[in-house]
């Protein structure tokens, strides 16, 4: 074994290596959220859905985006596996817990609940992928193939799938609740990624914390608005 491979494997076996991986994959997933939110926000600007469908068509056919889709799944998988390893190692580090403990006196509940929030998000994600990604990639869906009157080219009518999915108020409620979990996951995760990578500096800490808090509120809020707005459109309120 060469010295280089020995060193890099030691890095990722170490507690700090797992921290770096968690932070890096977390920041990568944050960058995905930004793109996903921007593209899907097109549903707000065009109630016919054709603007959103065009953006979705670009995302579904662009070669760079398609490659990044694979990288994204790899990043997500690493984030999950690393998180599970940390969770089980941390539980093992304290075989016997305290009979009486006041954790709220020294830390926030969501910073201590990243694993459970992550599990909730993963559960949501499986449902979310089943709703949209599986349909658009693998299923022969008549509704998707239905040409949209505004379409210039032959593209999937993903907006009609959104309308169909969010016509169910229970689904809308689940999506909104999932965004609450995402908000709290990000509220700790955003600045935490910087800290894990050693990016802690008195000159920039306030900016990182403010950006993290803003991101954790604004992005999940916009995501939560999507199913609500589409539901309100289906019942004719908006």
């Amino acid at each position: 074994m060469s010295a280089a491979t020995h060193k890099s494997s030691a890095l990722f076996k170490s507690s700090l290596g797992k921290k770096y991986l968690m932070g890096l994959t977390g920041l990568f997933l944050i960058s995905f959220l930004l793109v996903h939110c921007f593209v899907n926000a097109m549903v707000f600007f065009d109630r016919s859905g054709s603007l959103f469908n065009e953006y979705a068509h670009f995302m579904g056919t662009n070669i760079i985006i398609r490659i990044m889709e694979v990288v994204l799944f790899a990043g997500l998988l690493l984030h999950i596996i690393d998180g599970l390893m940390l969770y089980f190692q941390n539980r093992a580090a304290r075989p016997q817990g305290y009979a009486y403990n006041k954790p709220n006196a020294n830390s926030s509940w969501y910073s201590r609940s990243m694993a459970i929030l992550g599990t909730l998000l993963l559960t949501f994600l499986i449902m979310h992928l089943a709703h949209f990604w599986v349909h658009s990639r693998f299923m022969e869906d008549n509704m998707l193939k239905q040409p949209h009157p505004d379409f210039k080219t032959d593209m999937l009518n993903l907006y009609s799938l959104m309308v169909d999915t969010f016509s169910n108020p229970i689904v809308v409620v689940i999506y909104v609740l999932a965004q609450v979990a995402l908000a709290y996951h990000l509220l700790h995760g955003f600045w935490s990624a910087f800290q894990s990578l050693g990016l802690n500096h008195t000159k920039y800490n306030n900016a990182i914390h403010m950006a993290g808090t803003a991101f954790a509120i604004v992005i999940p809020f916009i995501f939560a608005l999507m199913p609500i707005v589409i539901y309100l459109r289906t019942i004719g309120v908006m």
């Binding site: 797992k18 190692q89 580090a93 020294n106 830390s107 926030s108 910073s111 201590r112 990243m114 600045w191």
Partner: peptide, 10 residues
């Protein structure tokens, strides 16, 4: 056998 830091701050 110590655990891993997750920046909780306790």
């Amino acid at each position: 056998g110590f655990g891993n830091c997750s920046n909780i701050g306790a």
